[in-house]
């Protein structure tokens, strides 16, 4: 799938640039994009190491185990392939908690951690199982309790009440999350 999406993006860019006459900008973007990519990697590497380090402490001291016990009923429903896998469930919990708390740069490292745990017992190495798909879909639609970037931007442009959209944001993210989960469940019925 990513094969088609990636090539699609590049081909669409070329055709669009032909139409809009922005070939010089496109050419620039190709060179700039690649170096922006490595800047992004270096920027996130720090958070990545810090959070994988911290989650290890949480694992060893039993914090994750307690969290997992609380969330287990939910985890079994969403990730049935890992209902008896304590390590995977713990890693998934870490990611979900980070998402809920709005710790954006912690959620990604913890999510990667969870994917690695899930991948260990995945029978087909290069193919995602239903629980892995569910996990990624939940992360693409994640719920933020306090969307700081948005509120900060609104405030800086002189909004009277920058947080009045919060209920709308919560409702919208819950609705789209639920629809994402339903869709993943439905499409997941097809065998691999």
């Amino acid at each position: 799938m990513m094969n088609y999406i990636w090539s699609g993006m590049i081909i669409i860019s070329f055709i669009s640039a032909c139409i809009t006459g922005r070939m010089a900008e496109l050419s620039n973007a190709i060179l700039q994009g690649a170096s922006n990519g490595i800047t992004l990697v270096i920027t996130m590497c720090g958070a990545m190491c810090f959070w994988t380090g911290l989650i290890k402490i949480a694992d060893v001291s039993g914090v994750t185990r307690v969290l997992t016990r609380v969330l287990t009923p939910l985890l079994i429903k969403l990730f049935p392939d890992y209902k008896d896998n304590e390590k995977a469930k713990g890693a998934i919990c870490g990611n979900i908690v980070a998402n809920l708390l709005g710790l954006g740069n912690a959620a990604t490292p913890l999510g990667i951690n969870a994917m690695k745990e899930m991948s260990k017992t995945n029978p087909l190495r290069d193919t995602a199982n239903n629980s892995m798909v569910m996990f990624v879909v939940i992360n693409t639609a994640s719920i933020q309790l306090i969307p700081t970037t948005v509120a900060m931007l609104r405030q800086s442009y002189g909004s009277n009440s920058p947080f009045d959209i919060l209920p709308c944001i919560w409702i919208t993210s819950i609705i789209s999350l639920v629809f994402g989960i339903i869709m993943a469940k439905l499409l997941g019925r097809k065998s691999i």
Binding site: M1, M2, I5, S119, L124, R125, D126, T127, A128, M132, V133, V136, V137, T140, A141, S176, L177, F179, G180, M183, A184, L187, G188, K190, I192
Partner: peptide, 15 residues
């Protein structure tokens, strides 16, 4: 993982 199966359709539907 190379085969993402129904990830992209589900995620885009949610979007």
């Amino acid at each position: 993982v190379k085969h993402t199966r129904h990830t992209v359709p589900s995620a885009l539907f949610a979007d």
